[in-house]
Amino acid sequence: MKLLTCPVNGPRNITEFQYLGPVRAASAEQPEQLIEALFYAENPLGVMREWWRHTPSNTVFIAERHTVSDQIAATYLPNRKPA
C-alpha cells in the first residue's frame, strides 16, 4: 500500500488520505474558464500537481506525482513550496 508523506505528520498509508483533484489553473468562477475547469483534466506524461487531504489531521496540501512511475516527488503545504 502506497505511502504518502503528509508535510505535517510524516509518511502515512495512502488510506489515511483523500484525493481532492488536480491543481487547476482554470477557475470555475470565470465564465470563460468554466468548461475547461469542469471537464478538461490535466493528463501530463510527467509530474502532476495534486491536492490531497490527510483526514485524521485535516491537513490540505499539494503533492507532486509522476504519472508514469507514480513516484511522489514532493509534498508541501500550499504557499510553502520548497525551493
Binding site: N9, R12, N13, T15, E16, H54, T55, P56, S57
Partner: peptide
C-alpha cells in the same frame, strides 16, 4: 503523538 488511524477510525 501521531494523528493517524486506529480501530478503523481517525484517531490521535
Amino acid at each position: 503523538l501521531a494523528q493517524t488511524r486506529a480501530l478503523h477510525l481517525d484517531a490521535v
